[in-house]
Simulated assay, not measured.
Amino acid sequence: MIPARDERLVIFGCGYVGSAIARQAIARGLRVTALTRNPATAESLQAGGVEPVVADLAGSAWHPQIAGGARYVLNAVSAGGGGIDGYRHSYVDGMRSILAWARARGGIGTLVYTSSTSVYPQGDGVVVDESASSEGVGERGELLLESERLLSPDTGGTPTPPGPVVPPREYMRCFVLRLAGIYGPGRHQLLDQVRTGIVAGRGGHRLNLIHLEDICAAIWSAFDAPPEIGSDVFNVADDRPATKSDVAGWLAQRLGVGAPTFTGLPAGTRRSVTPDRVISNAKIKRVLGWQPRFPDYRAGYENILSQRRE
């Protein structure tokens, strides 16, 4: 049985996902403290009723500024640039700092960590669930796995080499949510590429997507999970992945533009084209009862397009 904790949410990393959760938590009547490295973000959060702390997560200067004992803790930090060193700093060193803070401040309740399906190297159209091997994953994916392993060697994740074991009782339980490709209002790179007629990547590869609203619902389903559900790892993706050419073609039709050309090259700062695979969401649906409001790209992008027309 998880003991009662202070009805408070602490968020580390208030970017796209963290800021959305902060708004929802305030609407739920929770006290919210959020750590961000961006002063402008801190001002916006404060205006919305959040207590902001501006600091580098990987450091320890912020530890005395945030009380322990929170019932909910979300680590939604992003790499924030800086290449591989930025990954290690944000994900691995940041997680170490959170655990040191929790230990020193008397522990916390449920911790949710938003990781990524990039920890899976599989391609060739295979279905990938949480038991899939991580062997052969790239350096960035390995750093994400290292940050996951810091939480617990027993979270039910992929069979990876043993990592550092953290002394118990920093948290009562933790959930690692491995997010598929994030999109939603204000974050729709593919939509913008289709407008230009040039789309990164390969059209025959399947896209595994997850809408912001469904990410938030998955986070709350973890926070609100019954006490008998212990620490675990879950994929968070929609129900029906489709090829990039199908998605881009549908978007082009909806936008009234011509079918785009695919570059065959990675998008943005990615080092390689995302592998062709199907990310299974069966486990989180079965264990936590989560169901996506936007089960496929049509529902999700239609929501975005309708908001842009308003």
Rank of each mutant, 00 (worst) to 15 (best):
M1N: 13
R5N: 03
G18N: 01
G18H: 03
S19V: 02
A20G: 05
I21K: 00
I26Q: 03
G29K: 00
R31A: 15
R31Q: 15
R31M: 09
T33N: 07
T33F: 08
A34Y: 00
L35T: 08
R37V: 05
P39L: 00
P39I: 00
A42W: 01
E43C: 01
L45E: 07
Q46S: 15
G48F: 01
V50L: 04
V50H: 04
V53L: 03
V53A: 05
V53Y: 00
D56S: 13
H63G: 08
Q65S: 15
G69E: 08
V73Y: 13
A76S: 15
S78P: 13
A79R: 15
D85V: 02
G86Q: 05
G86V: 08
S90R: 14
S90C: 12
D93V: 05
M95C: 06
S97R: 09
R103A: 14
G107A: 11
T110A: 15
L111A: 12
L111K: 10
V112N: 11
V112Q: 10
Y113D: 05
S115Y: 10
G123I: 06
V127F: 06
E130P: 08
S131E: 15
S133E: 07
S133A: 10
E135T: 13
G141E: 12
E142A: 14
L144P: 02
L145N: 11
S147P: 06
S147Y: 08
L150I: 06
L150D: 07
S152Y: 01
P153K: 07
G157Q: 07
G157H: 06
R169K: 13
E170M: 11
Y171K: 07
Y171F: 15
M172Y: 13
R173C: 10
R173Q: 12
L177W: 06
G181H: 06
G181M: 04
I182Y: 01
I182L: 15
G184F: 03
H188Q: 14
H188I: 00
Q189Y: 11
L190T: 02
L190V: 05
T196A: 04
G201Y: 04
R202V: 13
L207G: 00
L207Y: 10
N208Q: 04
I210L: 14
E213F: 06
D214E: 08
D214Q: 10
D214C: 08
D214A: 09
C216R: 13
C216V: 15
A218T: 04
W220G: 03
A222R: 08
D224V: 10
P226C: 05
P226W: 09
I229Q: 13
N235S: 03
V236S: 05
V236I: 12
D238K: 07
D239V: 07
P241Q: 12
A242I: 12
A242F: 14
A242C: 15
A242K: 14
V247W: 07
G249T: 00
Q253P: 02
R254E: 14
A259R: 13
T261N: 08
T261G: 04
T269N: 09
R270A: 14
D276E: 09
R277I: 05
R277E: 04
R277S: 05
I284E: 01
V287D: 05
G289C: 03
W290H: 08
P292M: 09
F294R: 05
Y297P: 06
R298T: 09
A299Q: 11
Y301T: 11
I304G: 09
Q307V: 09
R308N: 11
R308H: 11
R309W: 01
